[in-house]
Amino acid sequence: MNIFRLAGDLSHLLAIILLLIKIWKTRSCAGISGKSQILFAIVYVSRYLDLVTTFISVYNTFMKLVFISTSVATIYLMYVKFKATYDHNHDSFRIEFLLVPCFLLALLINNAFTPLEILWTFSIYLEAVAILPQLFLVSKTGEAESITSHYLFALGSYRALYLLNWIYRYYAEGHYDLIAIFAGAIQTILYCDFFYLYITKVLKGKKLQLPA
């Protein structure tokens, strides 16, 4: 554990908490992509199957359980409790266009051809692109509430901080995982346009609104 990794995990946790607060306080999931939330739930479940096979640390187990349970809770809030506020019409990204290629790529490029390892690899590839339905929704509506922007900023920062963690670990421990590094770089790049808007608009007190 190093400072970048811890900051990344805390940023990830903050993102999830911000999202739950937004939905709970406003009693609405308007502006949030249910498709992205479903993809994240698939990511956590397929990645954290090692909960039952490998014990790494109390911290590791605790965080995995938190990510799985909060992601299920988010889906419950969106599709059951506050279903009436869910923006079906704008959330029209076809997730099979992400799920199928990620799974095929995981079958082709993986660390080991075993069920758990393929699912882990699939989850890494899928996480890299899981935010696309959300970014697509923001581009369709042309705006995002400020708390939704904070959520996206924290979520994007998490993998960017992991990139620093991987650089640190490569030099400090000689540890590296090319699949995670490659996918993490793609994941971070996808947020760059949003980061730019966040820094130039939201941090200056303006609403995140895309140019018409």
Binding site: R5, I56, I109, N111
Partner: peptide, 10 residues
């Protein structure tokens, strides 16, 4: 692709 079997990251 990796030097370790266990994935210790989240």
């Amino acid at each position: 692709f990796s030097d370790e079997d266990d994935h210790d990251e989240l």
